[in-house]
Design a protein around this nucleic acid. Structure first.
Lengths: 147, 147
DNA sequence: TTCTTACATTAGAATGCTTATAATCTAGTT
DNA sequence: AACTAGATTATAAGCATTCTAATGTAAGAA
């Protein structure tokens, strides 16, 4: 069993534990998220599944993403562009984003706990987490710029 | 002359240099941004100025914010919630955001250049900048939660 | 297996933020 | 004072997302 397949199985177990029904549409959305290395938008998921489910509504995609978010199976990534992206890799990592083409690449870096601690001291907040995005130009777009 | 007034003067000079006209509406939007310690949304600016300019269109607020963004006078902050916020503090700083009430507080921390450098090496991106947001519960909301 | 029902899905309308359009107006120069 | 490129206004349009109400169905119970 491949790693994505294994993560899918685990996710299905989590859904059942939470008392959430496994419908074909829900299964398909989850499966697509798990095997995708990109961080798809709701619309990308909808379009990717329209062959398999010609009658599926966009609302179903949104509903299911909301369910997955509530259970903690995926994370929502909101950037400057209009639509949210969804990341099923819930392990700690940051993202690096291409200014030109919008590509998002996972980037591993030790969690910056000292920043959270200092922020607590300075602001009096009760800090729960943080996120960081690095921006730049990806290698593909660097090549394109040369020609 | 107070600090916000001084920054406003500098900003007006920058606008003139860029060949941008100074209209009363544009001046008012800029002034409001400069003296605001919050990070207002377009609609907040619109509502704050409707006494002074009862006929001003929302489009004017958006147009002007776009002009300021292009010139580099303000930065756009996009988070999970629906509308963008605008920050006229262009010095390097991060933000700490309350999960409960959405309050955004400036938070100074030395720029994490080593993260950018490592990201370049690992991903091959040509890195230009990064942003970080810390999340938690502000002191006010911590108090409210106790009662 | 069939029955049941609470939950899911569907289609389409509605919402909210932002941008586009076209007519009118004006800041700043001539 | 006249001119004109650029700004403002009012409104329509666009897009992502959520809501609504009717219909369908997963999964447990009988």
């Amino acid at each position: 069993m491949t790693v994505p397949e294994q993560r899918l199985q685990e996710a299905l177990t989590t859904l059942k534990k939470s008392g959430v029904r496994i419908t074909p549409q829900r299964h398909a959305v989850l499966e697509y998220l798990m095997q995708s290395m990109k961080h798809p938008t709701a619309d990308e998921i909808y379009k990717a599944l329209e062959d398999k489910f010609p009658n599926m509504s966009v609302a179903t995609v949104y509903n299911n993403l909301r369910v997955f978010l509530d259970i903690g199976l995926v994370r929502e990534l909101t950037y400057g562009d209009s639509s949210s992206r969804f990341d099923c890799n819930t392990s700690d990592h940051y993202h690096i984003i291409c200014d030109e083409c919008g590509k998002i690449v996972d980037f591993h870096y030790p969690s910056l706990n000292e920043v959270e601690q200092l922020a607590e001291q300075v602001t009096g907040f009760d800090v729960t987490n943080h996120r960081m995005e690095v921006y730049g130009t990806c290698e593909d777009c660097q090549q394109l710029a040369k020609h």
